[in-house]
Simulated scan of single mutants.
Amino acid sequence: MIRIIHGADFHLDSPFSGLSPDQAARRRGEQRELLGRMAQAARERAADLVLLAGDLLDSERVFQETAQALARALGDIPCPVFLSPGNHDFWSPRSVYATLDWPENVHIFSSPQMEAVELPQLGCTVWGRAFYDSRQTDSPLAGFRAPEGKGVQIMCVHGDTAPQSEYGPLSPAEIETSGLDYLALGHIHQGSGLRRAGRTFWAYPGCPEGRGFDELGQKGVLYVELEEGRAQAQLLPLGRRQYEILPVDVTGKEPLEAVLAALPQDTSEHIYRIVLTGEGESPNLPALERELAPRFYGLTLRDQTRLPTDLWKRREEDTLTGLFLRAMWTKCQEEPEERTYQMAARFGLAALEGGEDVSL
């Protein structure tokens, strides 16, 4: 049995543009800490291999301390480490992969052609290749067939199973006919879980920690136990912080009370987007944020509430308010997903009710 740690898509030195400059700097520091936790996981699980399937870096521009932290963490892993550069951290003569002195246990695939590294002590071969640009339209599995009777066959590549992708597209049929025992993929930030095509097991581990509201929940790396014809995988959480979206229905409730009732027990380490839904008067978002912000590492509020149904009944009135509501009702019915009309109705009513509402 071969024990594998499979990671990808760390995107070290991401800009974190949605956070304040101080928070963004802290988040980049926390990203480097993920490397140490991955190395610790490899030691605790007595891993035989670590496979890193691309986009460890967010771009060619890397802080020196990040490059040094990466090399140091990988060198602390007591087993071979294989790294396949992806579309964000593609290999070039100027890349950190070419210019930094890497530990002896680290093998970086540096060719656009498939390369094989035999590991007789493990009875396996590890295949891989590198992105040479930010786009790569050919499949890493095009024409590939692993040799039979040569032990366990493993591949570590950056690629995309979506059709017509520009990022190393590969198809289920190519995976099935590859002859591989395990295909370690990177590029997709949502973990796939362990899958199988023919005899080949394959997976995306997802990113090890979310960087935005398109990367929700708990993240990490995969721990895989592999032998010919059998595999099992487990997610090892690495991330310190999670991005979460929490819808809260405020119908008939005070917004603050409704939010507090819906919150999990501990949110102080995480970044939340709270979406207010249901019917009610327009909530005071600045005041609500002042009350709630200390409970989170980061917080944004979104108002998606609707005007109370009974308020729309006033559109039958023979008043300026009725005339205004009739016009807004029509707009809201024509484009129910357009939030602008709901907001216009709110502000318009506030303005009307602040003055004299005369009959027509």
Rank of each mutant, 00 (worst) to 15 (best):
P120R: 14
P247F: 10
G36N: 13
V224I: 15
K219Y: 01
G159C: 02
A350R: 10
V126H: 01
P85Q: 06
L276R: 10
E118Q: 14
I4E: 02
Q304K: 14
A203L: 04
L183K: 00
G193Q: 03
E228H: 14
E244F: 10
I77M: 15
R27L: 10
V81D: 01
C332Y: 00
T300S: 15
T340D: 09
Q190G: 10
A98V: 05
D101P: 09
N87T: 02
T99A: 10
Q40I: 02
S178V: 03
G252D: 12
N105K: 11
E353R: 13
L83R: 06
P103K: 02
H11N: 08
D318A: 15
A24L: 11
L185N: 03
Q164M: 13
H107A: 02
P308E: 12
H270D: 15
V221R: 08
P172F: 11
Y132W: 08
G123F: 09
P247M: 12
V221W: 05
T125N: 09
M1E: 06
G36L: 09
E225S: 11
A344K: 06
V221Q: 08
A351Q: 06
G355P: 00
L49M: 09
F347E: 12
L288A: 05
R230M: 03
V96I: 13
K150N: 10
R3W: 07
R195V: 01
A293W: 01
G18W: 01
D160P: 08
S192I: 02
P247T: 11
G229N: 09
T330V: 13
E225W: 02
F324E: 08
F324N: 10
D249Y: 07
D160M: 07
V96M: 06
S134T: 13
S59V: 09
